[in-house]
Design a protein around this nucleic acid. Structure first.
Lengths: 146, 146
DNA sequence: GTGCAAGTTGAAGTCGGCTTTAAGTAAAGT
DNA sequence: ACTTTACTTAAAGCCGACTTCAACTTGCAC
């Protein structure tokens, strides 16, 4: 017999409000069974799903993207290992991009502290900006990630 | 004589819409001079500021947090190096936390692929969940970052 | 079996982060 | 000078991610 959690218990365990859990369910991110009296009962495994959702969210991934990812995790039958690998590598790339962004941000900060200048925005020593000015009318520093 | 950018030019260069730039200005994240005819003229340095904002945002940092950080970068007079160090280390911690989250997310994914199971949520091999069940009624996996 | 905390729903409200709209002004090209 | 394109504002609208509300039902505790 499977042990299940009420919405309150899952909320408490995960640190996510019951209202948010219902919202996630409406969006198809998590699933719940029901009691005879129509109350939700969560499989313990959902706790991991919720954790995954929250982490992803905290690093700037939208719920829609998360849903797409979770949808690709087949609940039912054997998926091809190739499908798995594809999904995984897509997320790997996404995560690597974000890690790179974070490192860039960190380096910007430390660079400006390192060089002793007082304004991040005016630091020419570590960041000669004129490279950009050279590459035509459409020079964009940060093309969109997605 | 300082070279300046119109809002359209800054928008194009940074990949951020003019409306968003005006919004950032209202929130105090960026600054602009004005022409005689009341049009904005941006110092080139603002490009770096905008870049910083967008990167921070993409990794889940709110504009308010960004503003707080940027506010601590004194535009005017010499700030204490201690202030700088404090601000920097606060952000370092923030960034390190986020990097850790990303790595955890990535490990969750790869772990589940590695072990060959088909459901992230049901993977018991690599993630025995019962440790959590043990630590009382308030066990929360992810206390808030901030 | 009764009481009360915890659960249910749909609809409306909130907040952050912008975009759009409307009505008008500035600046650059010819 | 004139035309076109880019800019200005305030106010309203929109979308994602929830929370709150109101009215009602379940289910565990005694």
């Amino acid at each position: 017999m499977q042990q299940t959690l009420t919405i309150g218990e899952l909320a408490h365990r995960s640190g996510v409000a019951p209202s948010a859990l219902r919202y996630y369910e409406r969006l198809g991110l998590i699933r719940a069974g029901r009691t005879g009296g129509n109350q939700r009962r969560y499989d313990r495994a959902e706790l991991r799903r919720v954790s995954f959702i929250r982490i992803a969210q905290q690093v700037g991934v939208s719920l829609e993207e998360v849903r797409d990812a979770l949808d690709s995790l087949p609940e039912s039958r054997t998926p091809t290992r190739a499908d798995w690998a594809r999904l995984s590598s897509r997320w790997q790339a996404k995560l690597n991009d974000r890690i790179a962004l974070l490192e860039r941000l960190r380096d910007d900060l430390t660079g400006c502290i390192g060089c002793g200048c007082l304004s991040l925005t005016a630091c020419r020593l570590s960041n000669p900006e004129d490279e950009l000015a050279a590459d035509g009318p459409g020079a964009r520093r940060f093309p969109a990630l997605a």
